[in-house]
Each structure stands twice: as structure tokens, then as C-alpha cells.
């Protein structure tokens, strides 16, 4: 009995399993994927205690790869590092096209206007992070996935999103419910209040839509005049 004939009964089920591998690759690249986060540039959102282990997060590659224009300020994304193309980094989007950002030291200019289809990304830990303050605004084509939730460890498993996006919308001038968070009583609200503090302090450096020609006032006038619906028509 030869080597191959001994394994003959297992060949068929093994092939049946292997046939699913390409579809699995497609699903993880076009759909959802579990991503392990290394490093401490996103403390305290990911890996709050360095020796403890690596966080595993759920990444939405559909939005990141095929509809990156749906990303909002405050979303956590994984993206390809522009200077090290094979490295995947996890950062938070602070500003999108048309915004003005007050930068931090390594960046040569004090204020920068984000060009079209670009974003300003920063880590939550400002001092140990190589982010847009080092390499400038990044193209949204570099975005790999939007991080939807922390999956592991289970003690910190939670959906991301909420406070940071709301703090960004507050900067846009939209009415927000964040005062409810701030006014919440008791110990249980502390994590939310801390996160809200950090988000608001960070978003202070972002001037939403300020880089548009005419600035914020021009945009508001345009929105009052009908916004996108009126684009084709002649405006007085």
C-alpha cells in the first residue's frame, strides 16, 4: 500500500475544504475581517496595558475599500502606512477634505488644509504615534477598513463609535446629545466622560469645512439655498 493510497479516503474531504479558501480570502478582503492590533499608538482605545496582550478588532473592509467616502470624522480606520507600504496601521480620522487642522510639532506647517479625497489621521496616544503629523494628509485610497468593534478581550469588547463621531459633529455645528453624557451622574459614566473629554480636546484642533472657498459661512448659505439639489440650477 503506497503512501498516497493510504490517504485516499481523506483526499476528497480535504479538497472540499480547500475549495472554500479562495472564497474566504475574498470575504475577508471585501467584507468583514478580524484584525489584530499591535503597538500602543491607539491607547487607551486599543491595548491599554502594553504587557497584557493584543486586541482583536472587527474591521469593515467593504466601507474601507469600496466606499471610503462614507467615512466620518471620528471613525477608527486601518490603513496602509504611506511610507512603509506593506504595514497596516490603525488610526483615527480627525478631518476630511476641506477641513483645516492645527498640526502638532513634527509637521512643518502650523495649519494645513486637507485636499480632496484625503483625510487627517492621528493615533489616540499623541506622543507614541506616527501619524499625519509625520506624513501629512493621507489619501482615502489607502484606507483598508473601518474598525467597527473591539472583539477581544471580552472584558473590553464594545462597538466603537458614538462619542468621537458626535464630538466631530459638534464641531460641525450640528446639535448633539453629548451634554447628556456630560451631565450623567455616578461612577458608571466616568469612562464616557473621560472619552468625551479626550474627543472634544482633540477635535478642538480641527476646523470643519474651514478650508472651503468662502469658509463655513459660504457653506451654510449654500446649504440654505438648497444644497446639492440646487447644484445644476442657476443660483442668483
Amino acid at each position: 500500500m503506497s503512501f498516497f493510497s493510504a490517504f485516499r479516503p481523506y483526499a476528497r474531504p480535504a479538497i472540499e475544504v480547500l475549495l472554500w479558501v479562495p472564497f474566504g480570502m475574498m470575504f475577508t478582503q471585501l467584507g468583514y475581517s478580524l484584525i489584530k492590533v499591535r503597538g500602543n499608538s491607539m491607547q487607551p482605545t486599543f491595548n491599554p496595558d502594553p504587557g497584557f496582550g493584543k486586541d482583536i478588532v472587527l474591521g469593515n473592509r467593504y466601507v474601507g475599500r469600496t466606499e471610503p467616502t462614507q467615512l466620518r470624522r471620528g471613525d477608527v480606520v486601518t490603513l496602509r502606512d504611506p511610507t512603509i507600504p506593506d504595514l497596516l496601521i490603525t488610526k483615527r480620522i480627525l478631518a476630511l477634505e476641506g477641513d483645516v487642522v492645527r498640526t502638532l510639532p513634527p509637521y512643518p506647517d502650523t495649519y494645513v488644509t486637507i485636499p480632496p479625497f484625503h483625510a487627517w489621521v492621528e493615533g489616540d496616544e499623541p506622543f507614541r504615534s506616527s501619524d499625519s503629523n509625520h506624513f501629512g494628509p493621507v489619501s482615502l485610497a489607502l484606507v483598508d477598513s473601518r474598525v467597527e468593534a473591539v472583539v477581544w478581550p471580552l472584558s473590553r469588547a464594545r462597538p466603537l463609535g458614538g462619542v468621537w463621531q458626535a464630538a466631530a459633529e459638534e464641531r460641525e455645528g450640528k446639535p448633539s446629545v453629548l451634554d447628556l453624557v456630560e451631565g450623567g451622574q455616578g461612577q458608571a459614566w466616568n469612562p464616557f466622560r473621560n472619552e468625551l473629554d479626550r474627543a472634544r480636546r482633540r477635535m478642538q484642533r480641527v476646523y470643519v469645512h474651514a478650508g472651503l472657498v468662502g469658509g463655513r459661512r459660504e457653506l451654510e448659505r449654500w446649504m440654505r439655498a438648497g444644497g446639492e439639489e440646487r447644484r445644476g440650477k442657476r443660483v442668483r
Binding site: W20, V21, P22, F23, M26
Partner: peptide
């Protein structure tokens, strides 16, 4: 068919 789509996608990418 689903497995075939996966194989074609991997070859294309």
C-alpha cells in the same frame, strides 16, 4: 458557483 467566484477573484487580485 460561489467557490468558483472565489477562485476567479483570487486569480484576478
Amino acid at each position: 458557483a460561489v467557490q468558483g467566484i472565489g477562485i476567479v477573484w483570487v486569480i484576478q487580485n
